[in-house]
């Protein structure tokens, strides 16, 4: 069987990642247009969740394939870049007094959802690390 070098494996993952992400976007976009607004929410939402889990699984496999330095670069960039980017935008909304607009409420809801996600992940991490002390 053909054994690919690390560099080529990661390049393949990148190409596959682009294809998977575009496919996800197309399918999710098509699903979101079915019926009137909110009509099939309880069908579309679980379907999107399943699709997103598939995408998350792919990201997990890709992250595992990366070596230490590349992984640290990705995780640090997503964490610090993502949090600081979101924070700057929230501050902008506050300064612009737009926090009560629909736009602002959506942004605050997204920030809240990120926090909930963090708490869940932290809880899982904490539970997994719990062992009997000796």
């Amino acid at each position: 069987m053909l054994k690919l070098s690390y560099t080529w494996r990661i390049r393949l993952y990148l190409v596959a990642g682009a294809i998977v992400t575009i496919a996800f976007g197309l399918v999710a976009g098509s699903l979101s247009r079915i019926g009137d607004e909110g009509e099939y929410f309880w069908l579309i939402f679980p379907a999107l969740l399943v699709l997103a889990m598939g995408l998350a699984w792919f990201v997990y496999i890709w992250l595992r394939a990366l070596d230490d330095v590349q992984k640290a670069g990705q995780v640090n960039s997503w964490y610090w870049g993502g949090c600081i980017g979101a924070l700057v935008f929230i501050l902008y909304l506050v300064a612009d007094r737009a926090q009560h607009s629909e736009y602002g409420q959506g942004a605050f809801a997204m920030f809240g959802a990120q926090f909930v996600g963090f708490v869940v992940m932290w809880g899982v991490w904490k539970l997994r690390g719990m062992v009997r002390a000796e």
């Binding site: 070098s5 690390y6 560099t7 070596d67 230490d68 330095v69 590349q70």
Partner: peptide, 23 residues
């Protein structure tokens, strides 16, 4: 060396320059 160890060249460069500690 990166190919032999199945890691990226950037990782070798970072470690040699003492910019990154490996796991």
């Amino acid at each position: 060396l990166a190919d032999l160890l199945e890691i990226s060249r950037q990782t070798i460069i970072a470690m040699e320059a003492d910019k990154y500690d490996p796991s």
